[in-house]
Amino acid sequence: MVSPSSGIVSSLPDFPNELLHRSERAPTYISSPSVPAELVDPTVIAQVRRPQSRLPRSVQRLLGPVLLLAGWQLLSTLEIFDQRTTPAPWTVIHTAWTLLASGELQTHLWASLQRVLAGLALGLGIGLTGAIASGLSRAGENIVDANMEILRAVPNFALLPVLIAWFGIGEDSKIILISLGVLVAIYINTYSAIRNVDASLIEAATTFGVKRRELITTVILPGALPGFLVGLRIALTSAWLALIFAETINAPLGLGRMMSDAREYFRIDIIFVLLASYAILGLLSLSLVRYLESRLLQWRRVFDGQ
């Protein structure tokens, strides 16, 4: 045993006094009463930090087409473009005004819109049904997926002679041709989106006792919604492309019919009017999908550029 009078014990500091002196030298912190912290939406912070422009976003997106038209008009004014093959924008606008004043353009446009809407409705119904059946069950995948992949590999326009042989040269073959491009785009993107839903979300919902029906409606389908909207964007583009070929099947009215007549009579100005009409219809379709995304995907945070 070591005696208290030994050097080891005497060399140790006086611990209570030493701790007292250290506590006096240490900084003191005044504890404030507990105040509940307010949750801050990160998207609001991003919007505050982002410089706001005076022009709406929809107007800013028109910058590219406006620059394209300005360059086109400049090259036409400098006579770099031949007016016989590439008319100036003002010539195209004048031709469009003439067609609108006579009512000819509206008549053909309405006929084309009816075909696109019918084909879009048919393709959406079949594509969504097949995607949900394949995405939610392996039995549905075994039956549907291979057929859809085959249909995807075969160009839709190659089926045109078969459709004419089966359904004739009436409206049915035109609508089915449009719907084929729509249903493939809807099926591929929606099926892929369903299968790419985060498995941890499904496991967490199952752990909390969520039933299968509620799991599908509250977890799987909302998680696949972004992929469906991407497919809808591609489907609208495919519908307008298929319309041109569909209206070559003995169509009395339609933009494709106008295109065929203008090509036959070498009316390049009318062809440019129809090209502009397809472009405007495509932009309107894209705006519709963007509006749906802004309304249906408010819960999703994504990178929106800087």
Score class of each variant (00 low, 15 high):
residue 104 E to P: 13
residue 137 S to I: 09
residue 47 Q to A: 05
residue 132 I to P: 12
residue 125 G to F: 13
residue 116 V to R: 01
residue 127 G to M: 08
residue 44 V to E: 06
residue 83 Q to T: 09
residue 44 V to S: 09
residue 92 V to A: 01
residue 70 A to C: 09
residue 64 G to D: 07
residue 95 T to W: 07
residue 69 L to D: 08
residue 95 T to S: 07
residue 87 P to G: 00
residue 40 V to S: 04
residue 55 L to W: 15
residue 107 T to W: 15
residue 134 S to T: 02
residue 44 V to G: 02
residue 132 I to M: 11
residue 59 V to S: 12
residue 132 I to N: 02
residue 123 G to Q: 01
residue 48 V to P: 05
residue 120 L to H: 09
residue 67 L to P: 11
residue 56 P to W: 00
residue 85 T to Y: 11
residue 122 L to K: 05
residue 120 L to M: 15
residue 97 W to P: 02
residue 57 R to C: 02
residue 65 P to H: 07
residue 95 T to E: 10
residue 77 T to Y: 12
residue 112 S to C: 01
residue 123 G to S: 03
residue 117 L to D: 08
residue 76 S to G: 00
residue 92 V to I: 09
residue 111 A to I: 08
residue 66 V to E: 11
residue 93 I to C: 03
residue 100 L to N: 13
residue 124 L to K: 04
residue 111 A to R: 02
residue 91 T to C: 12
residue 96 A to F: 10
residue 118 A to Q: 08
residue 58 S to C: 00
residue 98 T to I: 13
residue 63 L to A: 10
residue 120 L to I: 13
residue 57 R to N: 04
residue 80 I to P: 05
residue 127 G to Y: 15
residue 117 L to T: 10
residue 127 G to W: 15
residue 50 R to S: 02
residue 140 G to R: 12
residue 99 L to H: 02
residue 125 G to R: 11
residue 42 P to S: 02
residue 117 L to W: 11
residue 56 P to E: 00
residue 82 D to M: 05
residue 95 T to Y: 07
residue 87 P to Q: 07
residue 113 L to N: 04
residue 107 T to I: 14
residue 122 L to D: 01
residue 85 T to F: 15
residue 88 A to D: 01
residue 115 R to W: 15
residue 60 Q to I: 07
residue 66 V to R: 13
residue 49 R to C: 06
residue 109 L to K: 09
residue 127 G to F: 13
residue 53 S to D: 12
residue 120 L to T: 12
residue 98 T to C: 04
residue 111 A to Y: 03
residue 83 Q to S: 13
residue 114 Q to R: 14
residue 72 W to Y: 04
residue 48 V to K: 03
residue 102 S to W: 12
residue 86 T to A: 12
residue 56 P to N: 00
residue 85 T to E: 11
residue 127 G to S: 04
residue 51 P to S: 06
residue 94 H to G: 04
residue 85 T to Q: 08
residue 103 G to W: 13
residue 130 G to R: 07
residue 134 S to H: 01
residue 91 T to F: 09
residue 87 P to K: 08
residue 67 L to G: 06
residue 92 V to E: 01
residue 63 L to G: 05
residue 106 Q to N: 14
residue 48 V to A: 06
residue 104 E to M: 15
residue 115 R to V: 10
residue 52 Q to D: 13
residue 78 L to S: 07
residue 78 L to A: 03
residue 130 G to N: 10
residue 81 F to E: 02
residue 72 W to R: 05
residue 52 Q to M: 11
residue 62 L to D: 04
residue 70 A to L: 15
residue 90 W to R: 06
residue 71 G to F: 10
residue 101 A to F: 11
residue 56 P to A: 00
residue 131 A to H: 01
residue 127 G to L: 14
residue 42 P to N: 06
residue 92 V to Q: 02
residue 59 V to M: 14
residue 115 R to E: 04
residue 113 L to Q: 10
residue 128 L to T: 03
residue 77 T to D: 08
residue 89 P to F: 07
residue 63 L to D: 08
residue 65 P to D: 07
residue 91 T to A: 05
residue 75 L to N: 03
residue 95 T to V: 11
residue 74 L to V: 15
residue 48 V to R: 09
residue 47 Q to G: 05
residue 117 L to A: 05
residue 96 A to C: 05
residue 70 A to W: 14
residue 132 I to H: 04
residue 67 L to F: 12
residue 79 E to R: 11
residue 41 D to G: 04
residue 108 H to G: 00
residue 133 A to R: 11
residue 40 V to K: 03
residue 65 P to F: 14
residue 88 A to W: 09
residue 95 T to I: 10
residue 63 L to W: 12
